[in-house]
């Protein structure tokens, strides 16, 4: 069985890598700005501007991709584990509805982790997802709060606030990237475990039961 989310997982992983890299460049530019404004204007302003504009568009593309991905991941989870407790539609609601997503977002990965733990091949990814769900909500709140503070402060934003906000953005994007990688690996491992590697052919009449046992053994 081919996973419905496989190709999208690969695309999202690459896009998230690009977003992490661009947020790292923005962070470096912020450090230059904090150290010396003139140096920033001479050498980093244009680069920061280009990366800023690209990141904004990239971010919107990634949100759209992410929602499609989480939907398809849940389609796969429901196929692999028929008793999986969350439908693809409900997963979208959990990720999209404001305020409710404070519970919905971490619970999506917590439930995913809990279910993958029951499959021996995906146990490691299951534990990782459960652990990451806690960091996800903490850093999501921290980075949202810091970004809002930077926005409200405008040109008066302090150096510490700018650096903290930049660092929190790198962390939150890295958490999403790690989640994406872990979900992809977990699903792949769970799917391999669920699908028999090679179907055992019906034994021909002339094969003795003893020989068959030998092959199986």
């Amino acid at each position: 069985m081919k996973l419905k989310s496989e190709m999208l997982s690969n695309v999202l992983t690459i896009m998230l890598w690009v977003l992490v890299a661009s947020s790292a460049i923005t962070f470096l530019c912020t450090i230059v700005y904090v150290i010396d404004v003139d140096l920033y204007i001479d050498y980093a302003y244009s680069l920061d501007g280009i990366v800023d504009i690209m990141s904004r568009v990239l971010y919107i593309s990634i949100i759209v991709l992410y929602l499609i991905w989480i939907y398809r991941v849940h389609m796969d989870l429901n196929t692999i584990m028929p008793n999986y407790p969350r439908s693809p539609g409900m997963a979208l609601v959990c990720n999209m509805v404001p305020l409710f997503n404070f519970y919905g977002l971490p619970s999506t990965y917590s439930k995913m982790g809990k279910s993958l733990i029951t499959i021996s091949a995906a146990r490691k990814q299951g534990y990782n997802l459960q652990g990451l769900a806690i960091y996800l909500i903490i850093f999501l709140l921290v980075s949202n709060g810091l970004n809002r503070a930077v926005l409200n402060a405008g040109t008066e934003a302090s150096s510490t606030l700018l650096i903290l906000s930049g660092a929190a953005n790198i962390v939150i994007y890295s958490i999403y990237l790690t989640l994406c990688i872990q979900v992809t690996r977990g699903l792949r491992n769970a799917q391999i475990k669920e699908t028999p590697a090679t179907p055992i052919p019906d034994k021909p009449d002339w094969v003795s039961s003893g020989f068959t046992n030998e092959i199986k053994g």
């Binding site: 690969n10 695309v11 504009i53 991709l65």
Partner: peptide, 19 residues
Amino acid sequence: EIIIVSLLLLLPISVAVVF
């Protein structure tokens, strides 16, 4: 995947060029 990512990255690059 590479084709899709390249096309998706064309969008932010184009916007950056225009800006």
